[in-house]
Design a protein around this nucleic acid. Structure first.
Lengths: 347, 347
DNA sequence: GTTTCGTAGTTTATCGTTACACTTTCGAGC
DNA sequence: GCTCGAAAGTGTAACGATAAACTACGAAAC
């Protein structure tokens, strides 16, 4: 039971060849005769040998593994993103592992230590609250692609979303559907550093201003963790406090789901009393009642671009950084009014 | 720019001590003088040294990392589970990484190869479609805890859910609320190997039989991927085909969410026309309209038990396997009828 | 007949740590 | 004065693989 795990030299001894030949067989290198190869493979099988990836990594530097760092495991957005990336990487015979950077800054820095990240061939960094100085610490020689809305120096490869444009699209749609008192739930007008919530609030404010409406600060309702529960409770509170609205732009679909629940709690109907638009086009959003009108960030395209940037860096460490901005589109469903046929724009 | 990464011997040379002393400092071993320690730490900081975890792992065998293998990244259940585990592991100064075993058996075997798993100090194996033979291949000397409903030999440590009991609880509740034609959406009466869908279908059948109702096979509606979209489409189909029901036990909350959408599509009201119960108590379920009555598997307790089993194996490789069965409870909300006050049993 | 070359291997030197065994110094104990 | 033990540190050999350089040998080239 306590048997030591089988190593390559066990296989070599048993097969009567050198360790290097075993390595050559297992890595499909060309300098092995056909019968030797078969014999080695037979011995590998018989002894149940499995390669030690740690040793291979130490020597060769390659791991075949890409890391994806997300803020939290239980955010639906990242779950869907991870599934897409994982499938796409399988084509390159690479493997995805996901780590959580965590809520606290301390845990974030620990998850993002160079030490951890260097275990991967490349890293996809989901929107995390790092500043430029933090990023610089992990810069050395590691292919990184930033996914999301951080505002970082040009030397980083990254794929961004058209946050402001999407928010504007959402808000314009609400206006065109007849809403005029439109809240930005989860938005922030100012923040120490630009982030998702500020970009999207800016898009909201721009659309209102263009329509001759006043983006009043009391219509910007900040959130902390953007959870469904927080959004629901917050909507309940602001309604109880007397805020009058006929439209809500929620900065994420999760926030919109919370808003929907809060509106229901208050006896307000969607879209009759209050219209609602989200942002992210989560899989679940189309299955709510009513279906959630939302902004689709075209995640498949984002993933494709991100992996292209990663492969480029893998192939050439000094590849010039690219800055991709993915397009967004409006998906209208039942949570806003003028969708003559909800199937039209639905996928 | 092309600078080599700093190694321990760079630090040692710069600090004028041996490599071992640097190692001793960084691992908080006791045989280092206070001033030497400070000096080494200063040099580490100055050179920006970060330990190479790969080398440490190869030499010491320890990684400080636990792997969680889940069937898919975009299943909400596993997202929530992963977040809980990650938080709990932080207390042990360990780190969680999540891998997806994937849809296809081929990718499953690759993700679960001993080679991959041996990179972790321990592995939590979420419900995956492995049979006993597969499990045996990855047995050697690796702390593993199985999470979920696999039917595996006693020598594996595992934490199970009371699947049948939960399904029975759900179905009994539907019956007590006046439903009599109750479908088991996503259930399976038979399968090559017992799995979640069969256990839960058995609980459903048991409850019906005990109540003197016939668990007719046409009320068992199988699913393949248990996605929201599939459940919605399937419900639409069976209703169109003329199936008459006044209650649905959905084998997971995601399936229930799809069922809810399908019922809405068909113009059926929940709970007035059809009552609905799910299983898993996802975070989102309480925020649906109506709130979803469901079975709560007490994930925090499951996680605590799973980590206890893991720690036991970490401390003693030959720890006797334990087989924990976690308790389930009913959470009643608006999707079933007699919840006099939905807040009562809600969290 | 000698040189060249391609095929099929082997040998050796690491990759960056840590385990283990060893040395040195110094104060306490008798 | 001498032994003993603890404290503080050093040297060497792995951990298990791979890169790179090298060998042996038969066939083709000239």
């Amino acid at each position: 039971m306590r048997r030591r795990t089988v190593t390559m030299s066990d296989v070599a001894r048993e097969a009567g060849v050198s360790v290097m030949t075993v390595s050559n067989v297992l890595n499909d290198r060309s300098n092995v005769g056909a019968d030797t190869r078969l014999h080695v493979l037979e011995v590998v099988d018989r002894l149940g040998y499995e390669i030690n990836l740690t040793a291979r990594r130490l020597r060769s530097g390659r791991t075949g593994t890409v890391g994806l760092i997300v803020p939290r495991f239980d955010l639906h957005y990242y779950g869907e993103l991870a599934a897409l990336i994982s499938d796409a990487l399988a084509a390159d015979r690479m493997h995805l592992v996901v780590e959580q950077s965590g809520a606290s800054r301390e845990r974030e820095l620990s998850a993002l230590s160079l030490a951890r990240l260097q275990q991967y061939d490349g890293v996809l960094l989901g929107a995390v609250g790092l500043d430029t100085a933090d990023l610089d610490r992990i810069h050395p020689d590691l292919p990184i692609v930033l996914l999301g809305e951080q505002d970082v120096p040009d030397r980083y490869h990254r794929v961004q979303m058209r946050n402001a444009a999407g928010a504007r699209l959402a808000t314009e749609h609400l206006i065109s559907c007849g809403a005029s008192r439109i809240a930005a739930l989860g938005g922030k007008l100012t923040a120490p550093r630009p982030e998702m919530a500020t970009y999207r609030a800016n898009g909201w404010a721009g659309a209102l201003a263009d329509a001759g409406l006043d983006p009043r600060p009391d219509l910007v309702i900040p959130l902390h963790d953007y959870s469904i529960a927080e959004a629901r409770a917050t909507i309940t509170d602001v309604l109880a406090a007397g805020l009058k609205i006929d439209g809500i732009f929620a900065v994420t679909d999760e926030v919109a789901i919370g808003a929907l629940a809060g509106l229901n709690d208050a006896g307000l109907r969607v879209p009759d009393d209050v219209q609602l638009v989200g942002f992210d086009n989560l899989d679940i959003s189309q299955h709510l009642t009513p279906g959630l009108t939302t902004i689709d960030p075209d995640r498949p395209a984002m993933v494709a671009e991100a992996l292209r940037l990663l492969r480029r860096q893998l192939a050439d460490k000094n590849a010039a950084p690219e800055h991709i901005v993915s397009t967004v589109s409006l998906v209208t469903r039942g949570s806003t009014r003028n969708s003559p046929c909800s199937a039209c724009t639905d996928e």
